[in-house]
């Protein structure tokens, strides 16, 4: 991506604390982003709630705010610093969520601040389950089959079509109770029946389970001109169902053939 000349000052949103699903890689990528921006002569303001990272060292940014990454605090920082652009896509889930909140709040538009990197639309498409599913279907990618059911008969029909296991999520239950994974028809009828009863609107969401499937990841970089490059692919040692945080991942994939790795 060519340098945007009008951008002189950028607010980088860090990843906050390191948790499962958002490990130290965002700390690293965020630090690299700060370095790259400063190399281009851009003033970098950083906000990160985690003081125990390299990112919040005084060397990585021109100004560091160790403050909670919440709408209220980030807005105050924006008002004080008046950056030209904001870079959130290197701050993992925390950064992305913050970008959406800021955009929806209207402060970015109000102060004429450009959201750099991944667009708001793309973030939403990746974060929102329904939007993601719709986007995948539009480009012809397969997603797990799912349906909403309000009676046991139609639920059984769905189960017969897609096979087991099936994930059952009752809509509007207190504390989300009453759901589960059914591995056979008996379990399915039991969980569904209970779920329909517990649901305040008598509705269950049924989804084909991909537990036990091979779990593959791709790291892709795409630029504003739609060029993309696959940095690497990775294969989880354990199948879907075992949390990545409890497992190991191997790069590159070891058991995918060339056509499988490409499609």
């Amino acid at each position: 991506m060519p340098k945007i000349d009008k951008i002189k000052k950028v607010l980088v949103i860090g990843s906050g604390p390191i948790v499962i699903g958002q490990a130290a890689e965002f700390d690293y990528s965020g630090t690299q982003a700060c370095k790259a921006l400063r190399e281009e002569g851009i003033e970098v303001v950083l906000v990160n709630s985690n003081p125990a990272t390299i990112m919040t060292d005084t060397q990585s940014a021109d100004k560091v705010y160790i403050e909670p990454i919440t709408l209220d605090f980030v807005k105050r920082i924006i008002k004080r610093e008046k950056p030209d652009g904001i870079l959130a896509s290197l701050g993992g889930q925390t950064g992305l969520n913050m970008a959406v909140e800021l955009a929806e709040d209207g402060i970015l538009e109000e102060m004429g601040i450009e959201l750099l990197g991944t667009s708001l639309e793309s973030i939403k498409k990746a974060e929102d389950r329904e939007l993601f599913k719709k986007t995948m279907q539009e480009i012809g990618e397969k997603v797990p089959l799912s349906t909403i059911s309000t009676d046991l008969d139609s639920a059984i029909k769905f189960a017969e079509e897609v096979g087991f296991p099936i994930i059952i999520r009752p809509a509007y239950t207190l504390g989300g109770s009453g759901g589960g994974i059914a591995h056979n028809m008996d379990e399915f009828k039991y969980i569904c029946g209970k779920g329909l009863k517990l649901s305040l609107i008598h509705q269950v969401l049924l989804e084909q389970s991909v537990a036990g499937w091979k779990e593959i990841e791709y790291e892709v970089i795409r630029d504003g001109a739609d060029n993309s490059i696959i940095i690497c692919n990775m294969e989880n040692f354990d199948p879907v169902g075992v949390h990545t945080g409890d497992s190991i991942v191997v790069a590159p994939c070891q058991t995918l053939s060339d056509v499988e790795a490409r499609c």
Binding site: S257, D258, A261
Partner: peptide
Amino acid sequence: TCMTGYQE
């Protein structure tokens, strides 16, 4: 230098 595609 391919990582896969040896059969091809």
